[in-house]
Design a protein around this nucleic acid. Structure first.
Length: 803
RNA sequence: GCCCGGGUGGUGAAAUGGUAUACACGCAAGACUUAAAAUCUUGUGACCGAAAGGUCGUGUGGGUUCGAGUCCCACCCCGGGCACCA
């Protein structure tokens, strides 16, 4: 009888769905386990083989924990707002809502063919008005608590299409679509004050179980640095320029200042600047560059001096020039720096290029060659009262001095910037605010939520850069909820990150019409026990959603019992690359469609192949040939059923079996799925060498294979006499007596090189092992005529003779 | 440029500081077959050797250690992120 995966998979998928075996109810008597994967964006291309990598991994985790008796929630939904559907609409005129519904249907079919144990009864969709009503409601909470505000922010502006572009749509400074030149254009945008939570987001990392590299990325992204804020005066002016520095010890070496092109002081000093035309020209040019282009160290530095203006270094009253240069960014610190070319690489490069004074204030380097940046490898010089001190001591002394003179204070600075929350796009949640000439920005009353997206004729943003909604005069014109006067709706929409910032809470109570989720349900399910997703979401989605959650927690809409961190544990999967190691993409034509694999080899093969292909957290190229190997493994497992008979278990097989039970259990928790699979292959190879397999051994093996190959195993389980679904059976425990080896190969090394191995009891003592070693014929040859200096014994492993 | 990963056979890879290359693919030989496919068995890091065995070998160069793929320092290469893709 052949392994007919098509028939088996169809049969069991239908049975599971009918039996609702993966649907969960809140049940206070059972321990809950909330398993979460990042919900997909339902793109027109359909499922990518990268999706099942994460989904299968947590499916295995979910299935194991379910078998261990937990009440497991493993939900699925759609993060369906976004650019592709909108761009598709611009191209074809097909409404994003219609295209999205079609894509979701296709994704659903594909996901269901993989045998994932999702609870489909809790499916959610961010574009459903019943869902985004709450996204809007939450935005209003930010607004009401003063965390949403308007600010002028530069956006990418295509001068030809006259529309705002996402960073991704700007390729080499030109518009991806039309090739037009892209400029920066400042626009008023809704912002959310995530920076207010910078410290909390940092501290919170200490109490969660995230992979270290994820924590590192977040810590660096938040970028806390403690330093000093110093005021520099301007000659013949009352104005002061504030700078933030972590190196106040080098203040005597500050030989010039640099302002970001957008710095407000430039405009304020306009009347005094002798070369204004030149400065203005430079600023206009800088606006066209991205931050990345501006700060790149290797690129030639550019800048222009503010003619006729001097700053005053407060420590020595020296007059120093002020420059405007685009390597200084407005978003970080105060948007102005004191430049210490002798001890900062960027300042050094700039000073060299424009022939500015470089003054060494820390000895120990060679400042004719480059900046000397190592702290505490030198001594302060040319710094009056700091001379002779170590830089770390000088930092303290200088900070105290600045404080005393009232020209500086301690300051903490974060790299984290506030969240730009506006998009001038159609396919997103409308921002539920109304502008009234008299009352200002007024929230849409809760009873009027959701503010539904109206159907529009044109999806292109307007010529003024406003969203397509702005062209719908009927929709825009409304009444002020406060004074009932004429007013206008906000036409910006929310970014894609909005809906995904709280979706994991909606899963706990997806059909609730009165609240975003009931407190009882939240209390039962939150926090998420295990969240897996891509590394590419570490600094945006993961940080945004942590912030969002903390805010809702603070305003009391999330029960205290849930804690203020949404995810207990976070892991990451690596990308699946195309064959040859390049990223899979439509344009490269190397995209693998999971449907093809399922049709040719079955879902179980696809699942195990993706787990077996390599370490879960690393990027791995797809390899068609590797799929075959996994298929063969499952076929051989299928054929093993013929060997199952009432014979007693063979001790050797039992040992491997229990070692496998132990290893597979541990490897699933550690996400070492590849070695879990290889261990099961070892067991399978051992079993196929036997005449007969005892039914007990067989059933135990099926139970550990069940989370990996749910369909195949369910069929074999039924044939072996299983009454209920194997996925509701108990996860096995290993027998610790059977796991230990009694006999080992004792390795004998001379100077760390293996010269012999001998069979020995696993618990062989040091003296016996040494006797064995010296007695070995092979060893004699190597130690003859040499003096034995030392013998090292490692229990259960080896003896190393040093000669 | 900055932050975070990674670099081991022909290929995907395995390895609490202790036998480097488990498992799988590929390849080669053999069995079965009229034949092929499938399946099964055996072999498979490189070099020298008939063999026994030896030498070399985990991106490069150094270091620590009885012993380093693993720890430390410097460098090279590849992947992810860099705030409006999701």
């Amino acid at each position: 009888m052949d392994y007919n995966f098509k028939k088996i998979e169809k049969k069991w998928q239908a049975k599971w769905e009918k039996g609702k075996i993966y649907e969960v109810k809140e049940n206070s008597k059972k321990e809950k386990f909330y398993c979460l994967i990042e919900f997909p964006y339902p793109s027109g291309e359909g499922l990518h083989v990268g999706h099942p990598r994460s989904y299968t991994a947590l499916d295995i985790v979910a299935r194991k924990h379910r078998m261990q008796g937990k009440n497991v929630l493993y939900p699925i939904g759609w993060d369906a707002f976004g650019l592709p559907a909108e761009n598709y609409a611009i191209k074809t005129g097909i409404q994003p809502a219609i295209a999205t519904a079609k894509n979701i249907k296709n994704f659903t079919r594909q996901l269901k063919s993989l045998g994932l144990s999702f609870d489909w009864s809790r499916e959610i969709n961010t574009t459903d008005p019943e869902y985004y009503k709450w996204t809007q409601w939450m935005f209003l909470q930010f607004f009401k608590h003063g965390l949403a505000y308007k600010d002028k922010i530069a956006i990418n502006w295509c001068t030809k299409c006259k529309i705002g572009l996402a960073n991704e749509e700007v390729v080499n400074g030109v518009c991806e679509r039309c090739g037009g030149i892209v400029e920066k254009k400042t626009k008023e945008q809704w912002m959310i004050k995530i920076t207010k939570y910078a410290e909390r987001l940092l501290e919170g990392l200490e109490k969660v179980d995230y992979a270290p590299r994820i924590k590192d990325q977040q810590v660096n992204w938040i970028g806390k640095s403690e330093g000093t804020e110093v005021e520099f005066g301007i000659k013949n002016s009352e104005l002061k320029i504030k700078v933030f520095t972590t190196r106040p010890d080098t203040l005597f070496g500050a030989t010039y200042m640099v302002l970001a092109p957008e710095h407000e002081m430039v405009e304020k000093l306009k009347s005094k600047i002798s070369n204004w035309v030149e400065v203005e020209k430079y600023i206009a040019k800088a606006k066209r560059k991205s931050d990345l282009e501006r700060t790149e160290l290797q690129k030639e530095k550019t800048g222009v001096e503010l003619g006729g203006i001097k700053a005053i270094n407060p420590v020595n009253n020296e007059e120093i020039p002020i420059w405007v240069a685009d390597y200084v960014l407005t978003g970080y610190g105060t948007g102005a720096i004191m430049a210490v070319p002798a001890h900062d690489e960027r300042d050094f490069a700039f000073a060299k290029k424009f022939d500015l004074l470089i003054r060494e204030v820390i000895s120990g380097g060679d400042i004719s060659k480059g900046a000397f940046t190592e702290i505490d490898k030198g001594i302060m010089v040319n710094s009056e009262f700091l001379n002779g001190l170590k830089p770390s001591e000088a930092i303290e002394k200088m900070t105290a001095w600045l404080l005393e003179k009232k020209i500086g204070k301690k300051a903490v600075n974060y790299k984290l910037r506030d969240w730009v929350f506006s998009r001038q796009r159609y396919w997103g949640e409308p921002i539920p605010l109304i502008y009234c000439e008299k009352c200002g920005w007024v929230p849409v009353p809760e009873k009027d939520l959701p503010v539904e997206l109206p159907k529009v004729k044109k999806y292109e943003p307007t010529e003024t850069g406003e969203s397509p909604l702005a062209a719908m005069e009927k929709w825009v014109k409304t009444k002020c909820p406060k004074c009932n006067g004429t007013a206008r709706r906000e036409t910006d929409t929310m970014p894609n990150w909005a809906g995904s910032s709280w979706y994991f809470m909606r899963y706990t109570d997806p059909k609730n019409k009165k609240e975003f989720a009931n407190g009882k349900n939240l209390k039962y399910w939150m926090p998420v026990d295990w969240y897996n997703g891509g590394m590419e979401h570490t600094t945006l989605h993961l940080l945004y959603s942590r912030f969002w959650y903390k805010f809702l927690y603070d305003i009391g809409v999330i029960p205290k019992e849930c804690g203020d961190e949404p995810y207990k544990k976070r892991t990451s999967h690596g990308l699946i690359l195309g064959e040859g190691g390049e990223k899979m993409s439509k344009s490269r034509g190397n995209v693998v469609n999971p449907d093809d694999v399922v049709t040719r080899f079955g879902a179980d093969t696809l699942r195990i192949y993706e787990m077996f292909m390599g370490p879960f957290d690393q990027a791995i190229p797809w390899d068609e040939k590797g799929v075959v190997g996994v298929y063969r493994f499952l076929e051989r497992v299928w054929r093993l059923q013929e060997k199952v008979s009432g014979k007693n278990a063979n001790r050797e097989i039992e040992k491997i079996l229990h070692q496998t039970v132990k290893k597979v259990g541990e490897d699933i928790e550690a996400m070492k799925f590849n070695t879990a699979v290889s261990q099961m292959m070892i067991l399978m190879n051992a079993m196929s060498g036997e005449e007969k397999i005892s039914p007990d051994v067989w059933k135990l093996f099926l139970r550990i294979l069940a989370p990996f190959a749910p369909h195949l195993v369910e069929e074999l389980w039924e044939k072996a006499g299983g009454k209920k679904s194997i996925h509701l059976e108990k996860w096995p425990e290993h027998d610790s007596k059977l796991v230990v080896e009694e006999e080992i190969d004792l390795v004998i090394q001379i100077n760390g090189k293996v010269r012999d191995t001998v069979k020995a009891r696993a618990d062989i003592g040091e003296d016996d092992a040494k006797k064995f070693a010296i007695g070995s014929e092979k060893v004699k040859k190597w130690i003859e005529g040499k003096e034995i200096k030392k013998i090292i014994f490692v229990k259960g492993k080896l003896v190393n003779i040093v000669v």
